[in-house]
Design a protein around this nucleic acid. Structure first.
Lengths: 192, 192
DNA sequence: AAATATACTTACTTAGTAGTAAGTAAACAA
DNA sequence: TTGTTTACTTACTACTAAGTAAGTATATTT
C-alpha cells in the first residue's frame, strides 16, 4: 500500500515544470492545483507543502524563466548581435511549435489580478528582456550588423512585443502567423 | 419593497458593457458573475436570464466589438490610407489611456480554455481585422502614401501584433511603452 | 538506537463558481 | 379583464477552488 516517495524531491521540479506549461497554455488564473496533482499522481496538499500559496508557485515559475533567460543570453554573449537576435527568435519559434505562448504574453493580461509579489516579478522580467534587447540592438547598430530607425529602446519594445504577440496570434490564426512575422521582422533589421 | 425594473432592458446592455470591460481588465476566465451583479445591483440569475451560459455572454461581447470595428472602419473608408492607420492607432491609444487591453490580447491567451463557439468568434474577429489592415496597407502602398517591405499580409500581422502587445506591455511597464511603440510604428510606415 | 527533519497523505474547511427551478410584479395584448 | 410575455428575484444545487491541520513513512543526523 506504500506509494514511493521521491528522494531530494524531484516532485518540486515536476510541479514547477508543469505549472510553467499550464501558465503558458491555460493562463495563471485558469489552471488549478488539480491540473498539477492529477497528472503527477500526488495530492494537492503536496503542492501546498512546496508552495504555500499559488502566488509562490507563480513566482518560482517566473524566477526559473528569468534564470533560463540569463544563462541563454550569456551563452550568446560573444556572437555577433544579428546572430544573437536570431537565437532569440529561435527561442520563440520553439515555443510556437509547442503551442506555448511566452510567460509575458500569458501573465500581462492577468496582471491586475496578480498578487503584488508576482506583479513585481513580471515587471522585473519585462525590464530584463527589454534592457538586454536594447543593448543588443545598440551594439549591433554600432557594428553595422543591424539597421533600424529611431532609438534602440523603442525598437526593442517593438521587437519584443512582436515576438510576444506573434505567439498569441499563432494560437488563434495558426502557426503561419508566427513564421510570417518572425521572417519579416528579421528581414527588416538586415537591410538599411 | 418593489425594486424598479428596466423597460426594454437597459440591463442587458449594461451587462455586456461591463463584461467587455471585465474581459479586458481581468480576463474572461478570471471575472465572475458577481463582478457584474454587484455593481449593477442585480442578482446573478438576472445575467443567466439574458445569457444562459458564460460563453453566450462572451460571444455577445465579441460580436459587439466586431460590429463596432465594422462601423468605425467604414466611417474612415474615404480617408487616405495613412490617415486610416492613424485612426486605428487612435483606437488603441484610447484603450491604453483607459488601462484596457484589446479583446484579442485578452482572449488569445485563454483561447484553449474557451468553448468552441467563442473560439470561432475570436478567430473570425482576428481574420476581419487582419484582412482590413492588409487591404488598407496594399491600397496605401499603391498610392505611395505608405511604405514598407514585404507583403501587405505579413506587414499587417506585424502591425496588429504590435498594437496588441503594446497594450499588454504598457500594463506591465507603464504607458510610455505604448507611446514609444505607436510613434515608431507610424514613423516606420511614413518614409521609404 | 533515538530524535529529528523531509516529503508527503488523509481528511477537512471555507469560500467561492456557474447554473437552475420556481415564483412574482409589471407591461402588454386579446 | 384576463391571459401572456418580459424581466427579473428568491432560494437553491452541484461543483470546484485554494488552503490547512494533523498524521505517517522514510531518510538523515546525533
Amino acid at each position: 500500500m506504500c506509494r514511493k516517495r521521491q528522494i531530494m524531491s524531484e516532485t518540486k521540479d515536476k510541479i514547477v515544470a508543469l505549472a510553467d506549461r499550464l501558465v503558458r497554455t491555460k493562463g495563471f488564473n485558469a489552471f488549478s492545483y488539480k491540473d498539477i496533482s492529477a497528472p503527477l499522481e500526488i495530492k494537492n496538499a503536496a503542492i501546498h507543502y512546496h508552495f504555500p500559496a499559488k502566488a509562490d508557485l507563480g513566482v518560482e515559475v517566473v524566477d526559473q524563466e528569468m534564470a533560463k533567460f540569463h544563462t541563454q543570453t550569456s551563452r550568446w554573449k560573444n556572437l555577433p548581435e544579428n546572430e544573437q537576435l536570431e537565437k532569440l527568435t529561435e527561442v520563440f519559434r520553439r515555443h510556437s511549435k509547442e503551442g506555448n505562448i511566452c510567460l509575458m504574453g500569458s501573465l500581462a493580461p492577468d496582471f491586475e489580478t496578480l498578487e503584488p509579489a508576482m506583479q513585481a516579478k513580471v515587471q522585473e522580467m519585462a525590464g530584463s528582456i527589454v534592457n538586454w534587447l536594447t543593448q543588443c540592438l545598440e551594439q549591433g547598430r554600432k557594428k553595422k550588423l543591424i539597421h533600424f530607425k529611431g532609438t534602440a529602446h523603442a525598437r526593442a519594445l517593438i521587437i519584443i512585443s512582436n515576438l510576444q504577440a506573434s505567439l498569441l496570434l499563432s494560437r488563434v490564426m495558426g502557426p503561419s502567423a508566427f513564421r510570417l512575422i518572425a521572417e519579416q521582422l528579421m528581414d527588416d533589421l538586415r537591410h538599411k
